[in-house]
Design a protein around this nucleic acid. Structure first.
Lengths: 257, 257
DNA sequence: TGCAGCGCAGAGGTCCGACCACTAGAATAC
DNA sequence: GTATTCTAGTGGTCGGACCTCTGCGCTGCA
């Protein structure tokens, strides 16, 4: 962190922070224009922008060119866009991301079984049905797959865990999407999701956890196999394979919103 | 985030990013002075600083006033300083953080039991001994407590999980420190840590997981009690404000650097 | 009346050039 | 030899000009 409490830019961050804590600023709210706010806080516009940029980088603010700056409204995200950079820097491996995901989601499923409400169960059921309906369309299938897992995260009642899962998942998303196009056995995958749903519905936390773990373990090995296999000719994209000493982990994950 | 590929500031981020991926920049390396780099990239110094600020906010760069800008060298950190802001924004609850920590650390302990090396076991043993030696000094004890958990995280062999744990832990650190001063039963705590160590040493993943979970559950309830009972300063809101001129998220905790 | 298009106002994005503040190491004084 | 001061270099802040984007009211044609 390049800031301390003596830095001018920190004055901005602290100001916004306190406004957040006192509820003076609510999610979705718009903050005053930069020029105006800068005058009010007695800082230059440049410094103000530094502070806002810091907050934006952390997913607290949402800056829209030509429109204004708003307090982030969507679900919490923790370092979502940073994982790619960090991965390149520290050489995160694909298996480490999968392992993390497996752990998080397994516990998420267990918690969902304990705390999930009717609306969550209904949403899960819906997504499972959609998965069965799209077993022939990998792209569409993936959408419902992601949504299913997201509902579970919400059902867990722990937004922090949900945010962490979202972080990992989005980093893995690009790779998943590449292999998704040639996925097989979506029927089998849908069956597993259905099993997870049933375990959660019957409030069986242990079962939910173990089935989720089985599902993700299978998904990982499936993807490993498909990623290692030579990329099909019609698809120009090259599977990443094991690059030598380079960072072998998440490369390009979307940073746009 | 507020950037897309057309933005000038993104050119900076992408440039650094690619230098990271190709290994042209290594952790600890210093990047050229702002004025020079700005000229080289054909962007203004202001834009360059915006990009660097973005990277710094994510823990990729380390900017030191009067010295230079470096590629972060220490262990990976994911959104460490952001959790406080996000918490204020989305209203994270203390129990949610504890729950997350319990889950992460339990699995971390299990993985450490499976993969921990001799050096990790030695370090754990060391910290346990130090804990016993400082049962009368809560402040000192806490240092070794934190270090013990950190060693386990390293021993897990999964830097992503370790980084997530660090994120949660540092967010809890402030509260922990406050109650630490009036902690009792440190002997009992040390005993539990010793149990964890022994489980890991004997490669008993299940035992390590369950003891760790027990430890953290106890720690949570202990802190809840202590935080609720003696309230020197009655403020209705979450403990956070107060003391120093600058609150800020967890800062002085890192060991290396 | 309907609506496609123009144009303006306001917001963020970029740039410049000057100056301030901090750090580390060299130069100096004791 | 050690303590102090000076200085070069680097990030931090400033303010003010100008660019670009977005939203929306106004215009003008069908």
């Amino acid at each position: 962190m390049p800031k301390s409490d003596t830095h001018v830019t920190m004055r901005v961050v602290n100001h916004i922070r306190s406004m957040l804590e006192t509820g003076e600023l609510q999610p979705g709210d718009r903050i005053p224009p930069e020029r105006e706010l800068a005058r009010k806080l007695r800082v230059s516009r440049a410094s103000l922008r530094t502070g806002i940029g810091y907050l934006a980088a952390m997913g607290v603010m949402d800056v829209r060119h030509g429109v204004g700056t708003f307090v982030e409204n969507g679900p919490p995200e923790i370092g979502k866009s940073s994982l790619g950079l960090l991965g390149a820097l520290h050489g995160f491996q694909s298996w480490q991301m999968f392992e993390t995901r497996r752990i998080l989601e397994s516990e998420l499923a267990a918690l969902a079984a304990e705390r999930g409400g009717q609306q969550h169960l209904a949403a899960m059921s819906e997504e499972v049905a959609e998965m069965y309906a799209t077993v022939e369309d990998p792209i569409e299938y993936l959408i419902h797959d992601v949504r299913f897992h997201r509902v579970i995260a919400q059902a867990s009642g722990n937004p922090i865990l949900a945010a962490l899962m979202e972080t990992i998942t989005s980093a893995l998303y690009d790779e998943r999407r590449k292999t998704a196009e040639r996925s097989r056995d979506l029927k089998q995958s849908a069956d597993l999701h259905r099993e997870i749903y049933r375990a959660i519905r019957s409030r069986d936390a242990g079962e939910a956890r173990s089935v989720m773990e089985r599902h993700l373990t299978m998904a990982q090995s499936a993807q490993d196999v498909e990623a290692a296999a030579p990329a099909p000719s019609p698809n120009g994209r090259r599977a990443k394979a094991g690059a030598g000493a380079g960072a072998g982990a998440g490369k390009k994950l979307s940073a746009s919103k």
